[in-house]
Amino acid sequence: MDWKTRLERLDRRIIFLVIFFAVLMPLFFPLGLSITPGPEATAFHAAIEALQPGDAVYLAADYDPGSLPELQPMLEAAIEQLCKKDVRIIAGSLWPACPPLVNRAFTQIAEGRFQKVYGTDYVNLGFKEGREVVMNQLGQSIRGVYPVDSAGAPIGDMPVMSGVDSYADIKLIVNVSAGYPGTKEWVQQVRSRYSIPIVAGCTAVSAPEYFPYFQSGQLSGLLGGLAGAAEYEVLVSGSGPAAKKMDAQSLGHIVIIGFILLGNLIYFLRSREGSVA
């Protein structure tokens, strides 16, 4: 058996091992590659920078643990920048598995690092079923949709909600989204109808689809996947959990490119031998 046949019949578990070690090694031995923020991440950062202290922001967190490594760093960095800007954060979710992840980020960043007070500086309204219907209802009355927060406490008396009951009182929507319902629906239902600016952080899988929204101005900023999160972290604080993973990400990509090239090299050589139809 020649080397081409051996490679063609390579057990897929060997490929699995190669990718496993390629991704694992940089976690132990970081390469320290530098990250340069792109225009989408820079615009995302600038949109939040333009806010004034006391402004109210709606943080729409629409994802679940399946996208945690990509999106949690975005959420954390966004909360960090919002806390630095001293704005009020009102968080809600259309994905049932998201509210505990939002709580985790609030506890860690808003409370832990910025000593922000729950109910005064930020609130987690939690999950609400209804997708696009909820998006529209929030434009009528936030209290109507969310009489209570994620822990069951009435939101009406919370200082963070004072003077805020619909999109008219919100300066910016920060959306972190893993799919449906998410960025696309926020743009379709809320951006067009209520003319409220939206910035979005989304999974890498869905990011290419949202470039037209960014170019058209329907999105004021866009973060795509772990790379987008890392670029944003660099802008907010110089580094962060996503930025630290970018070395592993880089090596993973190089291995995949290597596999594509190797697979095609064998295919090309076989074609020349005339053994491929």
Partner: peptide
């Protein structure tokens, strides 16, 4: 472009799990 971004997403998720396991 979508394929490239999909690879990025899948790698990120693997990195997340490895970071949990080993970290």
């Amino acid at each position: 472009a979508s394929y490239g971004f999909t690879v990025m997403a899948r790698m990120s998720l693997l990195i997340g799990r490895l970071e949990f396991l080993f970290g």
